[in-house]
Design a protein around this nucleic acid. Structure first.
Lengths: 242, 242
DNA sequence: ACCTCTATGTACGACGACGTACAGACTTCA
DNA sequence: TGAAGTCTGTACGTCGTCGTACATAGAGGT
């Protein structure tokens, strides 16, 4: 079953019972997501949902002034487009590829059809949505209380969790857009991390050398999000009843 | 039908079809929510959901240091306890009464039973949850980019929308806890608003004199949340299909 | 009338982040 | 090999918020 193999790379798909997977997979296509691609714009009616495998997508709010702030990060643990099954069909944020890679794409209506069978998919997606809510809430907290240095650590860890390996392909300029701060602020913070031997970077490639230390330098926000995600997405349990 | 009358004060309950209301209402009780009461603590397994009528409840994240930040505000437009039907059973935030009043309380299991009938309640609650997500996302943005003055305006407007009249019973100290800033910062901002003739306050009572001006002084965040809530909670449409 | 508690007002130095400007280093492509 | 573009480093004055400290005034109780 070739489809199944690829789908296992996305935790959400992998967690679904075999019968649900079999109904969905024939309709899914693997697409390339280049860096910077906008999957949907604020207010767009969503047509597809995306299940990232080795890509990362940011949900970004862009203000009237053009300034931006990241609301949450989505990788192989989740999907892009919760508004489709939540019923709103659109959101106020933009979905933009933060790390190039691949994703499975599914026509929204197919997902909704399965969702409306009220089985495992519904419960799985709702639990995932709650973990997304937690991430958004913690982003709000972090933006209020923590320094750029701490936020950079949190952001690196969240991104790292969604990729294989210990390298991020990402300029400081892009990170600044995500965090909603100046590029120079990221340069300062990254420079400090590099001098501490925690990371090493060069022209758009960041390697994490000491993850443990990175976690200790991060604010509590990363741990909160990580722990709650682990709890909510402990797939084996609760998936067949609410 | 005495139950129905009171339930109409909560928009979420009011939006439900008669048969759903009739099944739920016998199990609901009207409870008093005094200022400062904690409906649930971070990590608690939720037992009840609350549908506020004339009270306001804040979802607050409390950090290790004890500092806090409000994630979202809930009033007669929504309910407290989405984690129950989302499947997580608990959240990382605290629910605390910000404005005393009443609410309908319902045993979580009753709500889940109805939710699992996969009818109008499911779609209604999911759309509400999306509006809540929007509010959280915008809180993150606002915390990043806007001044205390702007955030105070946003906060006053959000609270005002959830109450009758134009008065808030709320000390500057409590507002500071919600916004996650110093009390003195709120004093400064509120003083400026008072000198502009936009509000008038005295020892824990705030009256809004000029709502239009308040909106113009607020950042875009209020309008974004308001507009999206109006869209998502335009009950008449879409409620019987996804 | 007095005391106590609570709510609000004001001041000042410290600090983090901002806006702006510009320099250096590496990459890409002609 | 040279030019253009990209990514990163550094500097400096400004501004908003913080932490701290203390003052004032109204509310409530005895």
């Amino acid at each position: 079953m070739p489809h199944l193999k690829g789908a296992q790379k996305n935790h959400l798909l992998a967690a679904l019972p075999a019968d649900v997977q079999e109904r969905l997979l024939p309709h899914m296509e693997c697409v390339e997501l280049p860096l910077g691609k906008v999957l949907y714009e604020s207010g767009d009616t969503l047509r597809y949902v995306y299940f990232p495998t080795n890509s990362i997508v940011s949900l970004l709010y862009v203000m009237e002034s053009g300034a931006s702030a990241e609301i949450s990060v989505v990788g192989n643990e989740g999907l892009i487009g919760v508004a489709l099954f939540m019923g709103g069909e659109s959101t106020t944020s933009r979905a933009i590829v933060q790390s190039a890679g691949q994703a499975y794409r599914l026509l929204g209506q197919r997902l909704k059809d399965e969702f409306n069978r009220h089985g495992a998919l519904l419960h799985t997606l709702l639990r995932y949505t709650q973990s997304l809510i937690t991430q958004m809430a913690q982003t709000a907290v972090c933006n209020r209380h923590h320094s750029i240095d701490q936020q950079l650590c949190r952001w690196l860890l969240l991104s790292l969790d969604r990729l294989e390996g210990n390298e991020l392909v990402m300029t400081q300029e892009l990170i600044a857009n995500m965090l909603g701060v100046r590029r120079e602020g990221v340069t300062d913070a990254a420079g400090r991390l590099q001098r501490l031997g925690v990371i090493e970077y060069h022209r758009g490639r960041i390697q994490v050398l000491n993850r443990v230390k990175l976690e200790s330098l991060s604010c509590e926000c990363y741990a909160v999000v990580r722990k709650e995600s682990d709890r909510l997405l402990a797939w084996a349990k609760y998936t067949d009843k609410v």
